[in-house]
C-alpha cells in the first residue's frame, strides 16, 4: 500500500520515460529516442535519387539511380524517411507483420518531416495510400500504407482519400526480382468507385520503395484518370544498385 503510494508519488515527480518505438530504449520524446531521431536526421541529409528517392552514394550526387536511369518512373518524384535496413526495416516489420499499429504515429510523423523539408511537395492537395488486396486486408486487419497516410494527413493538414483499389490479389512482391515484380503488377490497381481526382496534385503513400513498381502502377492509374501530378513518399527506400554493380560495395 505504502509502497505503491510512494511509487505513484515518485512517478509524479519524475515521470517515467516512455519507450522508443523503434529501438525500445528509454525516450523523452513521444517520437523516439535521441539516437533514432539523430539517425533519421542523417537520412534526411543524405544524397538521394531526385526521381525515386532511393539513397545514392556521395560520388553520384545529382545523378539518377540505376533503375531510374534505365527507365523513368511515371510519378514526378518520391522521398523516403530512411534507408531500408536496421531500425527502419525493423519498424516496418513490426508494423506490418507483428501488428504494432502504434508505430504508425511516429513513422508517419517522420515521413511528414521529410515532406515538409522538401520544397517540391508544396503544391500537394490530396493524399492517397497504396491499397491492399481485400484478402490480405482481412488477414492483417489493417493497411499499413493507409495508417501512414492518415498520420501524414494529420501532420500536413491535407485530406486523405482511399482513391485506389487493388483489383488483383497479387502474390507478395517481397520475394521477387525486378522483372517479376513489374509483370506481377500489371493491371493490379484501379480507381475506386465514385472517386474523381482529375486535375489534383496527389501524394501517393507506400511503406517501402524497392524497384518503384508498385508506385509506378498506381501513378499510371491516377494519371490515366486525369490527375495533374503524382508525387510519392515512402517510409523506407533501398540503396541505389549502381555502386554495387561497379564493384564498390558498401563499407568495403
Amino acid at each position: 500500500m505504502l509502497k505503491s503510494f510512494l511509487k505513484d508519488l515518485f512517478d509524479l515527480l519524475y515521470p517515467p520515460k516512455g519507450e522508443c518505438g523503434f529501438c525500445g530504449l528509454p525516450a523523452e520524446d513521444s517520437l523516439g529516442c535521441g539516437g533514432c531521431l539523430e539517425l533519421f536526421r542523417d537520412y534526411r541529409k543524405q544524397e538521394f535519387c531526385r526521381k525515386c528517392g532511393k539513397f545514392i552514394y556521395k560520388e553520384n550526387v545529382g545523378l539518377l539511380c540505376f533503375d531510374c536511369g534505365n527507365e523513368l518512373p511515371l510519378f514526378s518524384f518520391s522521398r523516403a524517411a530512411g534507408l531500408y535496413e536496421g531500425v527502419v526495416k525493423d519498424a516496418l516489420y513490426n508494423l506490418k507483420y507483428t501488428g504494432r499499429r502504434s508505430l504508425a504515429a511516429p513513422m508517419g510523423q517522420l515521413m511528414a518531416r521529410s515532406v515538409l523539408e522538401d520544397g517540391r511537395y508544396r503544391s500537394l492537395e490530396v493524399i492517397v495510400p497504396v491499397p491492399l488486396a481485400q484478402g490480405k486486408l482481412r488477414h492483417r486487419g489493417f493497411n499499413q500504407s493507409g495508417l501512414l497516410a492518415r498520420e501524414l494527413g494529420k501532420w500536413l493538414k491535407v485530406r486523405v482519400e482511399e482513391a485506389l483499389v487493388r483489383t488483383k490479389d497479387t502474390d507478395s512482391q517481397a520475394k521477387k526480382g525486378r522483372r517479376e515484380r513489374l509483370y506481377n503488377l500489371q493491371g493490379a490497381f484501379a480507381m475506386a468507385f465514385g472517386q474523381d481526382l482529375a486535375g489534383k496534385r496527389v501524394l501517393l503513400v507506400d511503406d517501402v520503395l524497392t524497384t518503384g513498381a508498385t508506385l509506378n502502377q498506381c501513378a499510371k492509374v491516377l494519371i490515366d484518370h486525369g490527375v495533374a501530378e503524382v508525387m510519392a513518399v515512402t517510409w523506407a527506400a533501398g540503396q541505389d544498385a549502381y555502386e554495387i554493380l561497379t564493384g564498390k560495395e558498401e563499407g568495403l
Partner: peptide
C-alpha cells in the same frame, strides 16, 4: 485502432 473485423472505432488491441 480502427478495427476492420468489428467495424467499431473504439476497438483496442494489446501490443
Amino acid at each position: 485502432i480502427d478495427c476492420i473485423y468489428c467495424g467499431s472505432q473504439g476497438c483496442m488491441v494489446c501490443e
